[in-house]
Design a protein around this nucleic acid. Sequence first.
DNA 1: GCTTCAAATAGATATTTGTCAATATGTTTT
DNA 2: AAAACATATTGACAAATATCTATTTGAAGC
Lengths: 104, 104
Amino acid sequence: MSMTEKQITVIFKALCDENRVKIIRLLKNGERCACELLDEMKLSQPTLSHHMKILCDSGLVVGRKEGKWTHYSVSAEGAEVAIKCISNLTTVTETESKCCCGEE
Amino acid sequence: MSMTEKQITVIFKALCDENRVKIIRLLKNGERCACELLDEMKLSQPTLSHHMKILCDSGLVVGRKEGKWTHYSVSAEGAEVAIKCISNLTTVTETESKCCCGEE
DNA sequence: GCTTCAAATAGATATTTGTCAATATGTTTT
DNA sequence: AAAACATATTGACAAATATCTATTTGAAGC
């Protein structure tokens, strides 16, 4: 249940690059194949491929291979994991308010 | 309401580095001053300062200055923005399933 | 005002990341 | 099997990032 810091960074690395955010926004309109994403993004084919790998590694996007084509779409499960992760990270479980500085 | 790709990357850059995730986890236990974080992290003071700036820029963490010290804590509002952001990005609004490849 | 302490900034450097051209892999069609 | 096409991998390079040491800023206490 508890993820390593490394695992968490892999999820959110997806959203650390403007082009990847743009790609996810394209996928909001439904499944797209790589060739279509390539048309819409101003990137070379290998660069797009690189970004799609990072997006898939994050779990936020899934690729469905069909013959020559790969169809990408947003993963609702991946999104849920990411949201739960942020929620977990940011829910404060105040134990004691001891401060190193000794004030208060 | 709609954020630029750049703005989104600023939020999630916070969670792209293992040390920053570790810092947020420390803040789960309540507010901490920089000196205490410095003790717990294996980083130089300037490096910690650098990470705290990125965390604050993301909105997930807020710094409260008090005399010489700066106290950091998780921002519930920032967390909510981040979650809404992921939710927005990943909620598919299927319009038409036209595919560039013409199959189906 | 001077000293002390906490945090930020500047400058330098090593590592990581994004990008592209070239090539490889794998699938479909002929 | 060969050709055509979609995608992935490799290798090179530029830009961004993480890190450190040294210095600066700013607040408290003497």
